[in-house]
Design a protein around this nucleic acid. Structure first.
Lengths: 349, 349
DNA sequence: TTGAAAGCGCTAACAT
DNA sequence: ATGTTAGCGCTTTCAA
């Protein structure tokens, strides 16, 4: 790789002049010399050494992204949003993927090993002189790890820190639950089954809260007998689907698409027509949702937007913009109402 | 961040001594002094500045990953494999995501804009003094972009270069087609429908070749009237599914799961029982495959393994290991035979 | 056993 | 308009 020293030698000027010209400093050289320098640089495909430059300037214009696991399905879209924001604002990113799932082969992510890995990751990033960090969780939960006091700006995405000193960006689960509840009550459903996630899931809790609020505002009684606790699996969807059908619901809201697909199985068993006899709503908007028969209604999380927002918060802090109290930002979700939902207020055909 | 200079001042020795001790040089200091230096470093949470270190050593121990689009579903697993390999071998990675889809909003990826973006990406990586590059395509096709002569080691993953100067790692589509064909003929199927991808798709061509070879080896006639050209969409799966059922096939091999789900729709229409009256095979092993009814048989690509292999080839080149001719490496796929496939050699129950 | 000094590629304050 | 110089944090040769 060519260096400014080389260009200086070739053009017979000092490195300072080359540096100045290349950085567009006005009047750094006579126009003839300047042109020659520029041409030589282009000819040699000169590319400044980022290591040297950043070392000298003591700025990297780079933020780090720590992902818990890049292969978990929501993560790449969040990373993409972060990158989009950084690109627009002239920052680079360096990705540090902790690979929790591949590494530990299970969900035990908040262990001492994880803590040690987090520390290591933090130090690796610090060594690269990054100016801020976005931490991307693999699902919405409380994270017991933070950077030490006095570290660079730090923002959590798709998760929240145990301590309130840091901002976080999540999607609006409660709002999504509300939207689904409203979509169903507006279409005349009053006897609605729910299959939640595990009770400790923050996502599930928030969704249920929103759903209950929708019923309340629609003047529909909430019947706790129609709410079952799930575990995200298809099997449990099948099991509670059977149970809910037996209890005569007209609609079922499963808190993820996998469980909703289990409900589909239950309906097939009983010969119940989805989208006519019973309506089904899922969550996650997986690519195969539209491939199910009938296409499954679902909720899409604003992952890219979460990434953009998280990155924006970090960059603002780096720029020293007034940021107020660290807050928990909540980005609205988008509903996809498909043929799996029937409108009971229409006369049946 | 603490520097060696600071540690030197605190311990009353020179920076050279600190550097030597910290790098484990034997006899760099008296054991008392050495201990003091180490302790001070630990106390200050000393972390060497990677910029300065790499600049000095003129080695970054880092390879670049260029992804065409990180959000396309196969990409993260490949990246994960690359990371796993690098981690084992003490290398770091820097990710450069070109974001082709988000950026151009369509599939026109091999345009002049793409070429320019590729050049830019290459230069950004070069500026960071990376020692090698893995280029991760978003699907298997010929890539018209390469690094300039004399550049760092470069390997393609999930795609192949137009020029033969570079190694590439893809999965064994032909082998997969062969496995599916064999799985079906072994179970007594002889009248098998096929829904391929677009004719220009290298994946599709290879799969078809392998499938035909399987029929040949099983002594089954290949009937071209039962092969239709698809476009990966569910609609086309539905359309050709109807047609194939009308032609009386006992099995259908769709070249992706999306089209296979269209075949499911066609079967539902005609009241044909999948896994009994007709068998269905897909490709991609999407997470919802097991959620279909009955669970869809499919082919899983060895994405992580491809990443590992690609990274391994780059690292070997960096180490100057003899690598022979640049080759096209092909990693075998894995079959998941599920309830969507019937065994006609068993007496029907 | 320890340290002085040079230099990686770059920028910028300060000459000239 | 152009150059000299110092220095970012680190490693390493060579000398003491």
């Amino acid at each position: 790789m060519a260096t400014i020293k080389e260009i200086a030698r070739l053009t017979g000027v000092s490195v300072a002049t080359v540096s100045n010209v290349l950085n567009g400093k006005q009047g750094a050289a006579g126009s003839a010399k300047a042109k020659e320098i520029l041409e030589t640089a282009a000819r040699l495909q000169y590319q400044p050494n980022a290591l040297a430059k950043n070392l000298k300037l003591r700025r990297s214009h780079t933020i780090g992204i720590i992902t818990e696991d890049l292969t978990v399905f929501n993560t790449p879209e969040i990373v993409d949003g972060i990158e989009a924001c950084c690109e627009e604002q002239g920052f680079e990113i360096v990705l540090a993927n902790m690979r929790l799932f591949k590494r530990y082969n299970n969900n035990l992510t908040d262990t001492p090993e994880h803590a040690a890995l987090f520390e290591r990751t933090l130090r690796t990033l610090a060594a690269k002189q990054i100016e801020g960090i976005v931490y991307v969780g693999y699902h919405y939960r409380k994270i017991p790890h933070f950077p030490p006091e006095g570290s660079v700006p730090f923002v959590y995405a798709y998760c929240i820190p145990c301590e309130k000193r840091f901002p976080s960006v999540v999607f609006d689960d409660e709002g999504a639950g509300f939207l689904v509840g409203s979509a169903l009550t507006q279409r005349g459903h009053t006897k609605i089954g729910v299959i939640t996630g595990p009770i400790e899931s923050l996502n599930a809790q928030a969704r249920l809260r929103g759903y209950q609020r929708a019923l309340y505002e629609a003047g529909v009684l909430y019947n706790a007998e129609l709410t079952f606790v799930g575990d995200w699996s298809q099997e449990i969807g099948l099991r509670w689907g059977r149970e809910l059908l037996a209890r005569g619901v007209t609609a079922i809201f499963a808190f993820n698409d996998m469980m909703a697909s289990g409900v589909y199985l239950a309906c097939a068993e009983k010969g119940v027509a989805i989208g006519r006899d019973v309506s089904v709503f899922g969550y996650d908007n997986l690519s195969l949702d539209e491939a199910l028969s009938p296409p499954l209604s679902s909720v899409q999380s604003p992952l890219g937007e979460m990434g953009r927002r998280a990155a924006g918060l970090v960059l603002d802090q780096i720029r020293g913009l007034p940021s107020g109290e660290p807050a928990e930002w909540s980005i609205p979700c988008r509903l996809h109402v498909r043929e799996s939902v029937a409108d009971l207020t229409q006369s049946k055909l």
